[in-house]
Design a protein around this nucleic acid. Structure first.
Length: 526
DNA sequence: AACCATCCCAACCGCTGTGAC
DNA sequence: GGTCACAGCGGTTGGGATGGT
């Protein structure tokens, strides 16, 4: 707003008073025919000139605007101004719920492809969408809430899983072909150089792209960021990142191998983690040829693309699902239910998305954040839920109690009635069995929750936390694999650590939300 | 009321892609 | 094939607006 054309403080006469003038090389700093290009907010007079020009000459040839009209704006600036503010049929005002929903879905699909997303939102500009998303990311990050609503997570993941080829994982000398059945050739990835981390709000380099198939798809917002190392160049992604594999005659993802890994560390490494559960995890692993020595990565599904090897800048991830029709949020297939649910649980496991009760819309996120803040300001609510204390939930009723008390924080004004109370209820079924049953689950402390609910060596998963999901998955799988093999033998040991200590090793214990490391990090980076 | 932090968004910047020459 | 100009994309910035203390 501050820089909008409505800033009438300017005289409307083209001038070059901006101190920024000429400091750019190919934007407006460059002069056109020796004329210094103006920068800064557009005036209504300038707008009028531009509109008149477009009326006469049509869009395009923006560099000619200055020649024809004397407008001291570079073509680039003119194009932007026209596209973002002056062109007809532009929708102004806040995004509607439908639009928000669509944006979320589109982002899950496309990642940060604002222009493509804008194409699906008539009257909206890529800039608007980008701004909206950035705001959303901030909010979600701040509140510890998911970027993607749970239903989206659930609906899109199976599709993405159908599409994506899992990685070929190297556990030491063992190559682990996880799934080759889809006809794709999975990338070979060496993990010797990786640290599997959980959260990295501060990204070294550029934002990575990691697809948490469960909906934590944004490293931007949740820090599931593969540490991008040595990012110095930019490589564009194709318009359909994942369709690269499915559409072409060559269903072959780039291959990673250990030899490549070292070189890969110099490049942006984009991949997604999709921690999935299977009701028969072991069987699945065995049947798919997965090396069980790599329990964690065995369930990794890559948002792989040819950019693995050379993408210089990671895009935000996406769930990367097939375009099955916008606006359609199909119910998840049965198979997916079993996929995302942890086997030991007898009851329905909540979505991995931290906020299953949320519509995921920005408005709801605000309310959730507020609710969480309230909670933060009233930690006694947790403390007094006596059964929830210091990392141990001793009793399902404790959750019940806690849940009940949580209701006290319900904000009746919540746009979708997605109060924390309701959220809590969803995560902690009143059966009291949910978390109790899964002794391998580990809780990750959320900064918004009471410190007393910190894990011990044995604790519970905080489903409000995407990293916790990841962590719990790994821990669970790690434990499972450990039971089966007795010891960890492959080269992922340095990553995994001892299974019994995995929680702490991986930071699944108490770890400040904002200082968690990234999910994956290449450790021996120069 | 004053101060501060955060939000919001228009505009800028740097880069890549594409087509013409 | 190389160069140039232009179009477009995505990330970042700057400053007014807003809300909280």
């Amino acid at each position: 707003m501050g820089r909008s054309s409505t800033a009438e403080s300017e005289d409307g006469v083209v001038s070059a008073e901006s101190p920024l003038s000429n400091d750019g090389d190919n934007f407006c700093g460059s002069s056109s025919g020796g004329a210094v290009m103006k920068k800064g907010p557009w005036t209504s007079a300038e707008d009028a000139i531009l509109v008149e020009y477009v009326k006469r000459h049509g869009e395009g040839n923006w560099n000619a605007v200055q020649k024809h009209t004397g407008l001291a704006r570079c073509g680039k600036s003119c194009r932007l101004r026209w596209a973002n503010h002056l062109r007809p049929n532009l929708k102004k005002g806040a995004f509607t719920s439908e639009e928000e929903r669509l944006i979320i879905e589109l982002h899950a699909k496309m990642g940060n492809k604002w222009a493509r997303m804008a194409a699906h939102l008539p009257g909206r500009t890529d800039n608007e969408i980008k701004n909206y998303w950035n705001t959303r990311v901030k909010r979600c990050q701040r509140a510890g809430l998911p970027l993607y609503p749970p239903d989206l997570c659930q609906h899109l993941l199976p599709e993405s899983q159908q599409q994506l080829s899992p990685p070929r994982i190297y556990g030491g000398d063992k190559a682990c072909d996880i799934l080759q059945s889809n006809g794709y050739r999975a990338p070979d990835i060496g993990f010797n150089n990786f640290n599997i981390l959980t959260f990295a709000p501060e990204v070294r380099g550029v934002p990575g792209s990691i697809s948490m198939g469960n909906g934590f798809a944004s490293p931007h917002s949740y820090g599931f960021v593969p540490q991008t190392i040595g990012v110095s160049e930019r490589a564009r992604e194709p318009d359909e990142p994942m369709s690269d594999y499915g559409s072409g005659g060559v269903n072959e993802a780039p291959t990673f191998n250990r030899a490549q890994t070292d070189s890969c560390v110099d490049k942006s490494f984009q991949f997604g983690l999709c921690v999935s559960y299977d009701t028969d995890h072991t069987k699945k692993l065995l049947s798919s040829g997965v090396n069980q020595d790599t329990p964690f990565m065995s369930d990794v599904i890559y948002s792989a693309s040819e950019h693995f090897a050379n993408a210089q800048k990671s895009e935000l991830p996406s769930l990367q699902y097939q375009d099955t029709g916008l606006g359609v949020w199909d119910p998840p297939p049965e198979s997916f239910d079993s996929l995302v649910q942890s086997p030991p649980l007898s009851g329905p496991l909540p979505s991995h998305c931290p906020s299953p009760g949320s519509s995921g819309l920005l408005e709801d996120l605000i309310y959730e954040a507020k609710a969480l803040r309230k909670l933060e300001n009233h930690p006694s609510a947790w403390a007094t839920s006596s059964n929830v204390s210091h990392g141990k939930v001793t009793d399902g009723s404790g959750f019940k109690t806690c849940s009940t008390e949580f209701k006290g924080y319900i904000d009746p004004n919540s746009p979708s009635c997605n109060s924390m109370g309701s959220l809590f209820n969803r995560y902690t079924p009143t059966t009291g069995r949910l978390l109790e049953d899964d002794v391998t689950m580990h809780h990750v402390k959320s900064e918004v929750f009471d410190p007393s609910w910190i894990v011990g060596t044995e604790s519970k998963v905080d489903y409000m936390r995407p990293d916790a999901i990841l962590g719990s998955c790994w821990v669970e799988q790690s434990g499972l694999a450990s039971k089966q093999r007795g010891s960890t033998t492959d080269s992922t040991v340095p990553l995994q650590g001892d299974t019994s200590a995995s929680a702490s090793t991986w930071g699944f214990t108490s770890c400040p939300w904002n200082i968690m490391p990234a999910v994956c990090q290449i450790s021996d980076v120069p």
